[in-house]
Amino acid sequence: MATASPPVPGRPARVRRPAQDVAGLGIGRAVGFLAPALLLIGAFLVFPAIWTIYIGITNYRLTGVEAVSPSIVGLANYTRALNDALFHNALWLTLLFVLGSAIIGQNILGFALAWTMRRARPAVRRTVEALVLLAWILPSTVVAYLWIAFFDRDTGTLNSILGTQGTAWLIDYPMVCLVLFNTWRGTAFSMMLYSSALQAVPPSQLESARMVGASGWQTLRDIVFPHIRGHVLTNTLLISLWTANDFSPFLLTKGGPNHESETVPVYIYNVALQGGELGYSSAISFLLLIANLLVALLYLRLLRRRS
């Protein structure tokens, strides 16, 4: 989202304050440097976004008559979304997903790992970090396959461990499975961010706290947390955005059974390709885009207030 920023040197305008041209490039060369990036952003970000808005006001479909001659339906897609029980369901599930796996799961697990590994022996720390990182960098399809095998009803690892043969975890508790999965999958980022944030906490203060006999919780609350508050904010907002837009739930459950794990991105996919309703799905995509922008805006605002 564009925010108030110093005038871009590349803007074809008279440069009234030469002091702004600190790099001494001059307009021509500055434009030359910016053009590739702007073109890429234009082609792959701005254009698709506008295209989405446009399709969102039509009844365009993947097949059938409306694929050849779609007509403009105005805001009908948006009013439909407001009354669409399945869309409400998707919003609610996305909220649960973000709350469970990002705001609570990844945040707390990531911090706990960073905090406990801080004093661990380097060998232990490196092993743990490598394992957590591995969960993060493996390709989604591979990971999804592993988790399906883990949760499988007939020969799943989880059922073998717990001795609960025949429990179809992904069918009976789809959202719980997804929250667990995504917590496992994404904790690495929070862990790394908090690891480096914790280094900003002055050891002398921790030492003093220990001297006066502060409990672990008191130390965390009164010494550590004030130092890393900004990091917590950054981390929470970033992982919330990623999680809200995450498509990997599709790989595990396809949104099923019967829409019980259909988060918004999965719903958009199912509406667009399974149902062929490209117009309606574009309208929902646009709503998701707006929601993302609002969160990003909130984030920028909070950051600015802090600094």
């Binding site: 254009f47 506008i50 446009y54 403009i72």
Partner: peptide, 30 residues
Amino acid sequence: MRRIPPLVRLAVLGSAASVLLTGCLGSSDS
């Protein structure tokens, strides 16, 4: 120079593009 608010810029760009795009969908079948 008078600065154009960013949101207005975006809106102008968007509506210009929409005008250009209108009628593009699906009409390429011929």
